[in-house]
Design a protein around this nucleic acid. Structure first.
Length: 478
RNA sequence: UCCUCUUUAGCUCAGUUGGUUAGAGCACCUGACUGUUAAUCAGGGGGUCCUUAGUUCAAGUCUAAGAAGGGGAGCCA
């Protein structure tokens, strides 16, 4: 394998012969010499190949356009031009694959994100998606490092599950039955006993319940896997297939949970700042240009400044009840500027309320805790007041909920009581209830939406642009 | 699913109160230029104005329906 362009650009001692295989970003030509900006994805920076014009090279250069793949032999030298440290003085130029500019959609110009989404198979080749893909990789790596350094074990929870009782959203059904000839039982219902698993099965909407099982033996575990929600959600923050990080910690309470989540987010941001400087600089510039047209008040903080701010400042922690008080007395609530006016305790918080708290009132990430039990999931631990549960949501500026978690109800009777109240089928969940039957312990966990984290770190505005092949309603291309 | 906006050259867009042959930048082709930084300069080719129906002497422009896409909301991560 060849040494990367990143490696060549970082070389201090030059003057040696080398070979570069890469894709052409741009070609510039003048009377005696041509320049190819070469990129192999190892860095956002290009290596410039300098090619003397001869009848032979001119014929080759005529066939080389943006997107072509080439092999260039030559000597790595300090650049005579201003834009870069090192460059490649070519002695031999070989075309590996042409890219006909009449048909290759990616041209050296600004494309809209919508256009690139329709060409998702080629958008890796843009500077933007190169940067996003590298940052995405770094965040995957950072997450595993964070947990590994803290003694967590990664567990793979099932993708296919027969449990439909988690209440986390609409599910995709998995079946091998012939949909044109569905087997029926005597009372006319579909006979799932003839299906592959002998029962109805779905794609998972969360690995949490299985992660809890593992935490009851290994103490500190986390999952990092794909998650599927068949919701008809059409927003910049939702995907039908997304990736989620779900730690689960035994002998931990809600405060440990918040510390863990805040620590993880800051670790990721620090990792990005330390390891993705070139890509973040590019992403920052993109964001600034993107927002130039906006009035100053609507522009976001400069990307790197924003990341440092989040890394260096404690998140605000307050209870749902305190948040309701702030919202009730807020100017937009009094002037009836909210679409949903906060009138009393118990109301579910809408996006506009979360955004007010994060973006206007506190101007920093906020952790909201102790929500009314009615608006939260069955497994969350009931507080002494009997009204609220030990839930915690982390809200980020521009994104909203990035983490949702809780201390779990470890008391068997209380959990069963909550399941009955919320019509969760208890007999199907006996395996889950066994955690509370045998050696139950206080424990807590959360779910972090990976693509939402990437929105924050990259400054992108739509989760469809931080995952290679987004799955959304009516869209399963590629 | 609801609200709202958009759809004009390969791409990004402009197109006046409805009026002659629908424009620009980038990309492409030709030429010029002594090392360029998404090079520059000059010239050239390139159009089912999303679809259908309607109003009108006349529709890219107005009306209706549909399609695709964006943004916001709900649900959530």
């Amino acid at each position: 394998m060849q040494e990367s362009i990143k490696h060549h650009l970082e070389q201090k001692s030059v003057g040696y012969e080398t070979v570069i295989k890469a894709w052409v970003k741009t070609k510039r030509q003048s009377k005696n010499v041509a320049f190819l900006a070469l990129n192999d994805g190892s860095t956002i920076k290009n290596l410039q190949a300098v090619i003397e014009l001869t009848p032979e090279t001119e014929a080759l250069l005529a066939r080389i356009h943006t997107g072509a793949s080439v092999e260039v032999h030559g000597k790595l030298v300090e650049s005579a031009g201003a834009g870069q440290q090192n460059e490649l003085m070519a002695s031999q130029l070989i075309i590996l694959g042409e890219a006909d500019p009449d048909h290759f959609p990616i041209q050296p110009k600004k494309h809209s994100l919508e256009f690139l989404r329709e060409h998702a198979h080629l958008r890796f080749r843009t500077n933007l998606f190169g940067a996003v893909t590298r940052v995405r990789h770094s965040m995957i790596y950072a997450i595993h490092s964070f947990f590994n350094e803290r003694g967590f074990y990664n567990v793979h929870t099932p993708i296919i599950t027969a449990s439909d009782a988690e209440g986390a959203g609409e599910m995709f059904q998995v079946t091998t039955l012939d949909l044109d000839k569905l087997p029926r039982t005597e009372d006319g219902k579909i006979d799932f006993s003839q299906d592959f698993f002998g029962r109805a099965a779905n794609l998972t909407v969360s690995g949490q319940l299985e992660a809890e099982l593992a935490a009851m033996a290994l103490s500190k575990v986390y999952t990092f896997g794909p998650t599927f929600r068949a919701e008809n959600s059409n927003t910049s923050r939702h995907l039908a297939e997304f990736w989620m990080i779900e730690p689960e910690v035994a002998f931990a309470d809600i405060n440990d949970d918040m510390d863990l989540a805040e620590g993880l987010l800051k670790y990721c941001v620090r990792y990005a700042l330390e390891h993705c400087a070139d890509d973040l600089a590019f992403l920052s510039e993109r964001l600034t240009n993107e927002e130039k047209a906006l009035p100053e008040a609507d522009r976001s903080m400069e990307l790197i400044e924003k990341l440092k701010f989040v890394m260096d400042n404690d998140f605000v922690r307050l209870t749902y009840t305190e948040a309701i008080d702030i919202l009730k007395n807020s100017t937009p609530n009094k002037k009836k500027k909210f679409n949903y006016i906060i009138e009393s305790w118990g109301a579910d918080l809408q996006s506009e309320h979360e955004r007010y708290l994060v973006e206007k009132h506190f101007k920093k990430p906020v952790i909201l805790t102790d929500y009314p039990k009615e608006i939260k999931a069955f497994y969350m631990k009931l507080n002494e007041d009997g009204k609220t549960v030990r839930a915690m949501d982390i809200l980020f500026p521009g994104i909203g909920e990035i983490v949702g978690g809780s201390q779990r109800e470890e008391n068997y009777e209380k959990l069963v009581q909550r399941m009955k109240e919320m019509h969760i089928p208890i007999d199907e969940m006996s395996w889950y209830l066994d955690t509370r039957r045998f050696g139950t312990v206080p424990h807590a966990g959360f779910g972090l939406g990976f693509e939402r984290l990437l929105l924050f770190v990259t400054g992108m505005g739509n989760v469809r642009d931080v995952i290679a092949f987004p799955r959304t309603p009516k869209n399963c291309e590629f």
